[in-house]
Amino acid sequence: MNGEPAAPTPVILGIDDLRPLPRATRIARTSREGIQLLQEHRDRFIDELWLDHDLGGDDTIMPVVTVLEEAAFNGRPFRIGTVFVHSANPIGAQAVVRSLTRWNYHVLRATA
């Protein structure tokens, strides 16, 4: 033991209806669950946020994107290291990347 405190566990959140996302510390399967997950982490730094566009049926990630946009618009953006968009829907993924980049979130397109 060297007396140094242990590094905090990274907070890695995922919102995806199907993928297991093994690195994620928490996963939401719907946009509603995703919004709740974000609210639970509102005052914490989120190291990574993984987003899928299509969440099954008529559900998409766009309600979550709206929450992130509104927070930035109100001058209190979520503190997120990197947002990874990993959707197999290229048009939906591009819409998410474009929307969040506009509000200065660090966003990367990842392979689905």
Rank of each mutant, 00 (worst) to 15 (best):
I91G: 06
R29K: 12
G81D: 04
G34R: 04
V107Y: 09
N2F: 12
P5H: 06
I61T: 06
L68T: 00
I61F: 02
D58F: 09
G3L: 14
D59M: 03
N74Y: 07
R79W: 06
I27H: 07
E70R: 13
A88M: 10
V96G: 08
L100S: 01
E4Y: 14
N89P: 02
H86T: 15
I35D: 00
A7G: 03
G56W: 06
D59N: 02
V107H: 06
R32M: 04
T30P: 00
R79P: 01
Q36R: 14
G75R: 08
N2T: 14
D58Q: 12
R26V: 04
P63A: 00
D58L: 07
L100A: 05
M62N: 05
A110Y: 12
D54F: 13
H86C: 14
V83L: 03
A72I: 01
R102Q: 13
E48V: 14
P8T: 10
V64L: 01
V64K: 00
S87W: 00
A6H: 11
T111R: 14
A72C: 05
G81P: 02
W50Y: 15
A28L: 11
A93Q: 10
H106D: 10
T9W: 01
Q36C: 06
A24W: 10
L55M: 03
I12W: 02
H41Q: 08
R42M: 05
R79Q: 14
L37H: 07
G81C: 04
P5K: 04
H41A: 02
I12N: 00
P77Y: 01
A112C: 14
A110W: 11
P63W: 07
E33R: 09
E40R: 15
G81F: 06
E40Y: 03
G75E: 09
D16R: 07
P77Q: 04
A93V: 12
T82W: 05
S99Y: 00
E40V: 02
R23C: 11
W103T: 11
L18P: 00
R109A: 15
L51M: 09
P90Q: 07
N104M: 10
R29P: 02
P90A: 09
A28P: 08
V67M: 04
A88S: 15
T101S: 15
L38D: 06
L21P: 03
I91A: 14
E70T: 12
I27P: 07
D47P: 00
G34W: 02
T82F: 05
F84T: 09
A6Q: 15
I61A: 12
G92W: 08
R109C: 08
A112T: 10
D54C: 12
T111C: 13
H86N: 12
A72W: 00
P90G: 07
L38R: 04
R29E: 04
Q39K: 15
A110M: 11
D52L: 04
S87V: 05
S31M: 06
M62E: 13
L13D: 06
Q94D: 15
V11M: 00
T25V: 01
R109Y: 11
R32I: 11
F78V: 12
N2H: 13
R23P: 08
E33T: 09
T9D: 09
V67L: 10
D54W: 10
D54L: 13
P10D: 08
A95V: 09
G56P: 06
M62P: 03
M1K: 14
